[in-house]
Structure formats: C-alpha cells, structure tokens
Simulated assay, not measured.
Amino acid sequence: MPLPFLTADRAFDELDDDHADGAALPHETQDRWRRPYRPGPWRVGAAAVLLLLASYLLFAAMIVAFAGALPGAGVCVAAATAVIAGALRMLRVGAWVSELGVRRIGFFSTTTLPWARVSVVRTVQQPVKWLGLPRTVQGQAVVAVPNAGDPPRPLITDHNADFLGRPEAFDMAADAVEGWVAECRN
C-alpha cells in the first residue's frame, strides 16, 4: 500500500537539492523567517493534546447549543478558541532566522535581534531550563551575544521541548543557526 505522505517529504528534499546553490525560489521573499530545525516531539505532542482538548470543547459547545443554552455554548467556543490559539503559538515557539536577523519567539513575547547587533552566536555549557519550567539543569544552549554588552540571549537549549532526548538534533540545529550567522554577516 503506497504511503503518499512519505513520498511528499522526499519531494521537499529533492526540491531543496535542486536549489542547493542558494538561489531563492521565485515565490520566496528574502526576508522570510525560517526555523532552522523541525519542532520536536514534546512540542508537537503537547500541541496535539491541546487540539484534542479543543475538539472536546467544540463538541461540548454543540451539545450545549442543541440543549438551548446559547451563552454556555459561547463560553465553550471561546475556551476552544483560546486553546487552539495556545496550541498554535506553542508550535511557533523557538529560534527563527532570516536575512534580517535572529528572532526568539517565546509563548508570550518575541524578541528580534538584527545581525548588525549580534557580535557572536555560539554554543555554551550553562544551566538551562528543563522544558521551559523554572527547574534548571546543566546543559547546552546556543546564545546570541549582542554588541552593546548586554547579557547573552539563549536561542535554543538541549533541554527544551524541541531537543529533549535528541542530542544529535540539537547539534544539527546549533550548526544551522551558527551557519546562518556566518552567511548573513558576510
């Protein structure tokens, strides 16, 4: 039985090979923000659970609406909308790069650092948050050091939801982010 979703991934890889020389695709804009790594299983799993919860809330809203309590159905729809928005925001969290600079997207805030203000991006050993919780453990982080003497800003860590238990994926993402710095600074 053919599995078309497996061949679709190969088609994207072949498309990347066709444009390996760095030429932009005709439909791409140069200031497009890209995540240099794929979201990890912890992040995708948590978003899937939230979307499952949202589907239950929407089903509850339908039942409440058929029962005749429209204000209650509205509350359920509003809660489902908030859960869906939270799941989508959770999937966007991480480090994004473009020709303009590096962007660190958090759940509640976004910080953009232009390449002109970045002195160096490097991988360091330091205490990092475990899955974004207040508990810290010893780990690795890719940090962007601003020119103005501000403290280094961690972009990604090996204990966040994208790389927990996947050290080789963290190494590849760290190399990709550092490669973007080398490419865009020249």
Rank of each mutant, 00 (worst) to 15 (best):
P2R: 03
L3I: 05
P4A: 14
F5K: 07
D9G: 03
D9T: 12
D9M: 07
D9N: 09
A11V: 02
D16T: 09
D18I: 09
A20V: 09
D21H: 13
A23V: 10
L25I: 04
L25S: 07
P26C: 08
H27A: 08
E28H: 06
T29M: 09
D31S: 10
D31Q: 15
R32G: 04
Y37P: 14
R38T: 03
P39N: 15
G40R: 13
P41A: 13
W42T: 03
R43T: 08
R43A: 10
R43C: 04
A47L: 10
A47P: 03
L50D: 06
L51A: 02
L52N: 09
A54M: 13
Y56D: 03
L58A: 04
A60W: 01
A65D: 06
A65E: 15
A65H: 11
L70Y: 13
L70S: 14
V75T: 03
C76K: 06
C76Y: 05
V83P: 08
G86V: 04
G86I: 11
R92Q: 15
V93H: 14
G94F: 14
G94V: 08
W96L: 13
S98V: 00
V102D: 05
R103L: 11
R104K: 05
I105W: 06
F108T: 07
F108V: 12
T110Y: 04
T111S: 05
P114G: 14
P114K: 11
P114R: 11
W115F: 01
V118W: 01
V118M: 10
S119L: 13
V121M: 02
R122F: 00
T123C: 07
P127T: 06
V128I: 05
K129Q: 15
G132L: 13
L133E: 02
P134R: 00
P134V: 00
V137T: 03
Q140K: 14
A141E: 01
A141G: 01
A141V: 12
V143W: 13
A144S: 03
D150P: 00
P151T: 07
P151E: 14
R153L: 15
P154K: 00
A161F: 03
D162A: 04
L164M: 12
G165W: 08
G165H: 07
R166N: 13
R166D: 02
R166Y: 15
A169K: 05
A169F: 15
F170A: 02
F170C: 06
D171M: 03
D171Y: 02
M172N: 09
A174C: 07
A174P: 02
D175K: 12
A176R: 08
A176C: 09
V177H: 12
E178T: 07
E178M: 01
E178N: 05
E178L: 14
E178P: 12
G179M: 15
V181S: 13
E183S: 09
E183C: 09
C184P: 11
R185N: 11
R185E: 02
